[in-house]
Every structure is written in C-alpha cells, then in structure tokens.
Amino acid sequence: MKSKYIIGGIIVVLFLGIGGYSFVNSSVEYASLSKAEESGKKVQVTGTWVKNKGSQYDPKANTFIFHMKDEDGKIARVVLEGAKPNNFDISTSVVAKGKYDNGTFHASEVLTKCPSKYEGKAEEHPEGLDPKSEQAEM
C-alpha cells in the first residue's frame, strides 16, 4: 500500500514541477509598447487602431499591417502574420500579442474587442473607458 503512495507522490511532484515550469514559461505579460521595445520579449499590448494611418493586407507575405496606439499614447507599426482579423474595423480596442523588433511590433495574434459581438451598448461606454478598470480594482 505504501508503494502506491510513493509512486503517486513522485508522479504528482513531477507533474507539478513540469506544470509549473511550463505555466511560467508560456505566460505572457501585459505591457506597453515602450516596455515591449525595452524587453524584447513576447508580450501582449492593448491599444487602439490608428484609423487615419490605414491598414493593409499583403497577400504576397500573408501579413496584415496597421498602426496601433497603446494606452500611453505611443504608436507603433504592427505586422500581423495572417489576414485582417474579423470585426477589426468596428473594434473599440485591439490586443496584439508579439515581439518588438527593428521598430516594428511583430504580432502572432491580434484580438479585436468589439462592443457588440456579445454585448450591445457601445454608445453608452464613453471612448477610452478601459475594460481593465474592473481588474485594477481586484
């Protein structure tokens, strides 16, 4: 009966170890563009699409390019590997995951946060109301 516990214990410890390591390793931090530039690590940046700078899809390279402004007001050119995300044009904010390199933010993923995919009242939320305010208080 004891061997059962020992083997079980070893498995649990191993699993926790690997799990913890993998958890920390694959976690990504929220950051501002300046912080992303500084660290050079993969981070997640929240901001808005700078509409008057336009956006374009390059079929040759299969990249989507646009400019985003982060919460500190810094603007960066973002190159996303892939096509324009759905609901990009009506998004109230975008979240880009990727690395800063050579003056460009290379995103592997861009999430669009739109006011109405599941929720309605975009009009009631003044521009710039940060959905994270909820989190900040927690």
Partner: peptide, 12 residues
C-alpha cells in the same frame, strides 16, 4: 468583463 483583453469573444 474581467477577461476583456484575453479572449476572442469580447465582453463589456
């Protein structure tokens, strides 16, 4: 709304 920034499903 707590997951606002982390999900493709967006929530207000």
């Amino acid at each position: 709304g707590v997951l606002g920034d982390a999900s493709v499903h967006s929530f207000v």
